Amino acid sequence: MSSISTSNDSMHGVYLTGHGGPEVLEVRDDIPRPAPGPRDVLVRVGAAGINNTDVNTRLAWYSKGDGEAEDASWSGQPIHFPRIQGADICGEIVAVGANVSNARIGERVLIEPCLQEHDGQNLASAWYIGAECDGGFAEYTKVAARHTHAVDSTLSDVELASFPCSYSTAENLLTRTQLAKGERVLITGASGGVGSAAVQLAKARGAHVIAVTSAAKADALLDIGADEIVLREQRLADVVEGNSVEVVIDLVGGPQWPELLDILGHKGRYAVAGAIGGEMVELDLRTLYLKDLSFFGCTVLEPEVFPNLVRHIEQGNIKPLVAETFALADIATAQEVFQQKGHVGKVVLKVCHD
């Protein structure tokens, strides 16, 4: 293994010590620094973004059980504590395993958050970095080399850390639905990290974008490419012509859900990757089969998604939206700001400083 100095085997970071409120986030300076396995790389983390998965995992929101949180991770498995969260990671490769080229040392990379390999083994089902294994809320993280993507950009680490989770999720939604140039797409939760990413990526495909948001955030979404704004309190039928939309990208769910299907046209495509407005919805099966609709639940990234995202970044097709930046030690405050949903774009933590 080629590596950095081993004079100090500890690192600064944040442990998630259990399920609960911000009190379970423990800032430490004595966390053991990970060592890469033969097919891994060690990444010095420059910045790490906050996303819904971090908060949902902490709160055991993914659990469908009786509160025991035995299925509280992305994969439906228990979380092993302490855990280092953080899936939005930008950093630099500083060490490599025996089976990884030394030429990769020094690469500036983004980490693909959806993992197919861990500790040299191919996974039967995808893991999420920062949930099933340790992530980026610490000075260093290790990950399979195949999940690190070199990025050539003048953007800062903080700006680049706003991309991995939100933008790859958005690109995956658009890839799965095969959104095409000239099609009309409606995006719920458009001011959030995934929503604002979807607006930009849909425009990059040449689509007509209808963004659902609040009045306070409407101008910001128009600035990044939305063609039309629908306010959250409006009935979709009052402002969007029925059967006029080819694709719905839903990040909210909740009571308004049946209206999303009403605006879809024949062979319309609906994709979902969030349920912050409510996870239980009512489906009229007649709408589903009479319109020949297709539904897509989107979690695991298609193989082409992350390389396509890096290409969009390097070509300047999309821009980072960083709402606020905090020091890693202020993670509890940062997550509180994130949960208030008063921002457009991402909340990012600075981890290592040059």
Rank of each mutant, 00 (worst) to 15 (best):
P22D: 09
A126L: 09
Q339F: 05
E112K: 13
E336I: 08
D250L: 00
V245L: 00
D29F: 03
G342I: 05
I129H: 06
A103Q: 13
I31V: 04
E336V: 07
L260H: 06
A207V: 06
A271L: 03
S162Q: 02
S5Q: 14
K267E: 15
E171R: 14
P258L: 01
G277L: 01
S162W: 03
S125E: 14
A170M: 08
R269Q: 09
C298K: 06
F81T: 07
E139W: 00
S63H: 11
G67Y: 13
S63E: 15
A211P: 00
A161Q: 03
R104P: 12
E279S: 12
V143L: 11
A98C: 07
E279R: 15
Q116K: 11
F295S: 10
V348S: 04
T333P: 08
E324W: 07
S294V: 13
K64D: 13
V109F: 08
E183K: 00
T141C: 15
L321F: 09
T213F: 04
Q116A: 13
P38E: 04
H118Y: 15
L16Y: 08
P34K: 01
G65A: 11
Y167N: 09
E68F: 15
G265T: 00
N308P: 07
K350T: 15
A323V: 05
D152N: 14
A145G: 12
A323N: 08
E68M: 12
E314Q: 11
S294A: 14
L201W: 01
T57G: 05
L321T: 12
T177P: 02
G345E: 02
A215V: 09
A211L: 04
E92H: 13
R176T: 12
S10L: 14
K217W: 01
E314W: 09
A198I: 08
